[in-house]
Computed example of a mutant assay.
Amino acid sequence: MAIVLGPNRYGKAEVRVVRVTRDGGTHRIRDLNVGVFLSGDMDEVHLTGDNAAVLTTDTQKNTVFAFAKKYGIGELEEFGLLLARHFVDSQPTIHHARVQLEEYAWDRITGPHSFVKGGTEVRTAVVHSDGSGGAESVVSGLKDLTVLNSTGSEFHGFVEDEFTTLEPTNDRILATAVTAQWRHRGTDSKWDESYAAARNALLDAFATTHSLSLQQTLYAMGRRALEERPELCEVRMSMPNKHHFLVDLEPFGMDNDNEVYFAADRPYGLIEGTVLTDDAPDAPSAWN
């Protein structure tokens, strides 16, 4: 029986970089968490400890900071592509780069240089590159986008067995924290415009879909994004059901006409799914 080295990669995780851009007296802030993961001719470092092919993770970290200074941080995906292409193009032993990015929002307060941190929502991107002229993929997205419909949601007609206690309902609160990723057909999108439009499509579909299940809502959201944004070919979503249960107020002599709820944080239903166009190109590495 032979024992061999399988797929592998290495890199620097969670490089926190904040870039302040000064336009005269007015400042802009981009606050990122960047992960770099590289693969290529790395057999010897695993098998014999020979580090000749290794670009150190400390160098990867420094590159993130240097690129933030040299190029600034404009569109999230473009910054990721710059980094990924650099690592492959500059190092003969590196054949593939994966750059993962998260962006944390800061909202301007009164004045040119005062900010308050935004909500829990985080913008995300994952970039893969085999170097300039090679195969590339870009997946944009977001996580922790918390949304709620106070009505317009039902849930009934489900399987019932001896352990079922959940009552069917024709009117409930539907709430979730959306994690969504959408794959681009190419690497030449107007990233900020595309992100804002895809996000709006998801929100519009959530708000306007009369929901019979969270699964139905998930599909409607993914479908809307693909219908409105031709540069996208696939949407993947993970949506926990943030349950709101009606409180029994009868012991206090009170009715509860869908007005008072207990918000339960766990356990929760977790709904996940993929919506894609029938001509979506294969991109097995895009999600990994």
Rank of each mutant, 00 (worst) to 15 (best):
Y195E: 02
T151G: 10
I173S: 14
G186Y: 05
D248F: 13
T57R: 00
M239Q: 07
V275A: 09
E103V: 00
T57L: 01
S194L: 14
N170P: 05
V99I: 15
G152H: 10
P168T: 10
I3L: 11
L249E: 04
V178C: 07
D204Q: 15
R123D: 00
K117M: 10
T57V: 07
F79Y: 10
A264V: 09
P7S: 03
H184E: 08
F158P: 14
I109W: 09
V260P: 02
V45P: 08
H243M: 08
P267A: 02
T274Q: 13
T217N: 11
K143V: 07
V64P: 06
E250Y: 07
H184C: 05
S285N: 11
D265E: 13
G131P: 06
L81W: 03
L174R: 03
H244R: 11
T165A: 12
L142N: 02
D161M: 04
G74N: 12
W191A: 07
D89F: 05
E228W: 04
G40Y: 00
A2N: 12
E121V: 14
D279P: 05
R16I: 04
Q91G: 01
A97Y: 01
S153K: 10
H86C: 00
D144I: 00
L101T: 01
D50L: 02
F163Q: 11
H243G: 04
T124Y: 00
T165F: 14
E154Y: 03
H184L: 14
H156V: 04
T217Y: 07
T93E: 03
G49Y: 09
A68T: 09
V247H: 10
T169F: 09
V159P: 04
N241P: 09
E227Y: 08
S213I: 03
R85H: 05
A280T: 08
L174S: 12
C233V: 13
F158M: 08
G118E: 04
S150E: 12
L276R: 14
G6N: 13
R172H: 10
E167I: 01
K117R: 13
G269I: 08
T176H: 12
A286N: 10
D130I: 01
N288C: 08
V4K: 11
P7F: 01
E102H: 08
L32V: 01
G74V: 10
L142H: 00
E167W: 04
A225K: 08
T56V: 01
Q181A: 10
I271T: 15
A2E: 14
F262G: 06
M1L: 09
L38M: 09
G134Y: 02
K12V: 01
A201G: 10
D257K: 13
K69I: 15
T120N: 12
L76T: 01
T208W: 13
R19P: 15
W287T: 06
K70D: 14
D188I: 03
A198Y: 07
N8I: 02
T176K: 07
F155P: 15
T209N: 14
I29K: 05
L249D: 07
P7E: 09
G119I: 05
V18F: 15
F115Q: 03
P168C: 09
S129R: 00
T26I: 12
T124C: 07
